[in-house]
Design a binder for these strands. Structure first.
Length: 599
RNA sequence: GCCCCCGUAGCUCAAUGGAUAGAGCGCCUGACUUCGAAUCAGUAGGUUCGGUGUUCGAAUCACCGCGGGGGCGCCA
């Protein structure tokens, strides 16, 4: 917000430090001063300069010398426009801003940019984010929701930070799991088709779990049971063979049931406001993957051990590593069929060459870390310049209190079940707390608030951690939650509605209340928060920011009157409320959470 | 054996190498005749797993341990 002034000051500091014989650092960082009361930006540059001086052989005691430098700078340099003074606090150099100028600048910038407040300058680097990769012939559960929401929030952050962004989804539409489901369907449910997009999609999961149970060896099974199971397994293998051979009946059944899953997925992605740009189907990666393998063999990157063994890449050996780190990767089975890794190589090539991705982010659970390390290294060996800009955003599982969810066993928490329960609970709260809310608005509000609570719960935990799913805590509406933030937006909206119109401009020349200052401070930090969250791939930062902003607003709202004060303060505070509302809306949007006007 | 992630308040979790480590939940106390109480104000709660380093400065970086989780040639 004061970048040009602080940059100018940094230049002066550098010159003065050099004149004093203390080598200034290449970059001078300014951070908001951590204490209330005074208000401005501080830098620890004097510590760095004094330390550099000591390193160059000067006999200085660093803390004393740093304090001396800070005192010199504070007394010699003039505060830039918009700042009231420079002063040394211990060895920190602090620049105190003029509250009136700062406030007007922040509020004007926010309101003139509106939905674009906080948007970064356009960058020349295309980013592809891959997420929402559920397998077909299963159903969308709460773990998939974490993945999809993490990816969507990240895509929104990166895009808003200034980078052209492509959203990619990679459904796993083939593999043994899919064939298992098809076998169960054909064997026991041929011709059946439940009505309703979600009922049908969820039913496939039941078929899959049922089939799996029949194909899994149980301890203490009789000889007869073993024989039956092995016969079933033979049927399944035969079905996979027929799929591979392109048998029209099998392909038709596969495509028809696949569509049931895709219909369910599309409906959920739509209600989650996730606009996928590109779909890559695993089944379509097969042929290009085989071509990649041949290329790897021809170029001496891969070794062909067929027919005795598979095609492998000895990555550690290729890199000359002594310790085993990337190990040896199998890129083609000995029977010539492709693997997950092979397809990911083909997919990456397509991302680089066909979609011109300069940077590629994979939102995939942390258990696949080695897989991606191997994939990225092989891409590097293949000579792709984008390979070092591939990043695996690993996240933890959503587990149940009793352990991991398992689609195979059928014990998963379905996303739609949680959403419907969330909406029921919101309706209960509305009945209790907002009985005047018109009936016809309640369903929409229940969706916005219920989905928001669920989303915030998944995004406000660091992606490295597992989340133990518990309905009550997942759907909490109190404390650090989406409804708390949404309620701040509702309150701001309500004030603005009662005010009627918003003044086109207003100064902040009166004595600002501490709570006003803190609110303005949080608004001013939004653009930086966007850049940080995008650069670190951490929607969590934005989730934390949104909460802090809401907290500042609630505190302000409670203690500082807006509509009841005299002009010109009233006009200034109205604009502040409008700016807070805008920033809350922008922050929520980056989290893929709705900002309702009533709730 | 090797590699990756994690360890912070009773619980769940935060904290670009920077100043006094912060929230929520839970506990306790207070505030609705008020711009919407899904709110606010306040109390209590800490050897940041341990150790040794690097640094003017370490929850953060390095190394060694301890504890938990995950992974390691034809699953995805």
């Amino acid at each position: 917000m004061f970048d040009s002034e602080l940059n100018g000051l940094s230049t002066q500091i550098r010159e003065r430090l050099a004149a004093l014989g203390a080598p200034p650092p290449a970059r001078i960082d300014w951070a908001p001063v951590p204490f209330g009361g005074t208000w401005g930006f501080g830098t620890a540059v004097c510590f760095q300069a004094a330390a550099a001086e000591a390193r160059s052989g000067q006999p200085v005691r660093i803390p004393e010398r740093a304090a001396e430098l800070a005192a010199d700078l504070a007394s010699r340099l003039q505060p830039p426009h918009g700042f009231t003074r420079l002063h040394a606090d211990k060895a920190y150099l602090n620049a105190t801003v003029d509250p009136g100028i700062f406030a007007a600048r922040v509020i004007d910038a926010c309101l003139s940019s509106g939905p674009d407040f906080g948007r970064g300058a356009r960058r020349d680097e295309r980013v592809m984010v891959e997420y929402a990769q559920p397998n077909t012939h299963h159903s969308f559960h709460i773990g998939h929701a974490r993945n999809a929401l993490l990816g969507e929030s990240l895509a929104r952050l990166v895009e808003f930070a200034g980078f052209p962004t492509v959203r990619a989804s990679y459904p796993g539409d083939i593999g043994l799991g899919v064939i298992t489901c098809l076998w169960g369907y054909q064997r026991f449910h041929a011709g059946e088709e439940p009505q309703g997009v979600h009922a049908r999609g969820q039913w496939l999961l039941k078929v899959y779990a049922e089939a799996n149970a029949l194909l899994t060896a149980r301890p203490g099974e009789t000889a007869e049971e073993t024989a039956t199971r092995e016969a079933y397994d033979a049927e399944r293998r035969e079905l996979y063979r027929r799929w591979d051979a392109g048998d029209p009946d099998v392909r038709d059944l596969w495509l028809r049931t696949r569509q049931w899953s895709l219909d369910e997925l599309n409906d959920i992605l739509s209600l989650l406001s996730i606009p996928i740009d590109v779909y890559f189907f695993e089944s379509e990666a097969d042929e290009p993957a085989k071509a990649i393998v041949q290329d790897l063999i021809d170029r001496g990157i891969a070794e062909d051990e067929r027919p005795a063994g598979p095609v492998i890449v000895r990555i550690d050996e290729k890199l000359g590593l002594k310790k085993e780190k990337f190990r040896t990767a199998v890129v083609l089975r000995s029977d010539g069929t492709t693997l997950y890794l092979t397809k990911d190589l083909a997919l990456a090539k397509q991302k680089f060459e066909q979609f011109h991705a300069d940077r590629s982010i994979y939102v995939v659970d942390f258990r696949q870390s080695l897989h991606f390390q191997q994939a990225f290294k092989i891409l590097e060996l293949m000579g792709f310049p984008q390979a070092p800009k591939c990043f695996h955003l690993a996240y933890g599982y959503v587990t149940l209190p009793e352990g991991a969810m398992s689609a195979r066993k059928g014990n998963v928490v379905l996303f739609m079940d949680v959403l419907l329960e969330a909406e029921r609970r919101v309706l209960d709260v509305i009945a209790e707390k907002t009985p005047d809310l018109p009936q016809e608005q309640r369903a929409a509000v229940a969706r916005q608030v219920g989905l928001g609570a669920l989303t915030y719960g998944l995004l406000s935990v660091d992606n490295t951690r597992d989340i133990v799913f518990d309905m009550d805590s997942a759907l909490s509406f109190d404390g650090q939650t989406a409804p708390y933030i949404q309620n701040a937006h509702v309150r701001a909206t309500s004030i603005l509605r009662k005010a009627g119109s918003l003044p086109a401009s207003a100064g902040f020349t009166y004595a600002l209340d501490r709570l006003e200052l803190e609110l303005i401070d949080w608004i001013s930090r939004f653009p930086t928060a966007v850049q940080q969250a995008a650069a670190e791939y951490k929607p969590l930062h934005m989730a934390a920011y949104a909460y802090e902003l809401a907290r500042a607003f609630h505190a302000f709202y409670h203690a500082v009157p807006v509509l009841q004060v005299e002009e010109p303060v009233r006009a200034s505070r109205l604009r502040l409320v409008a700016a807070a509302r805008q920033t809350l809306a922008n922050a929520l949007r980056l989290l893929d959470i709705a900002a309702p006007d009533v709730m």
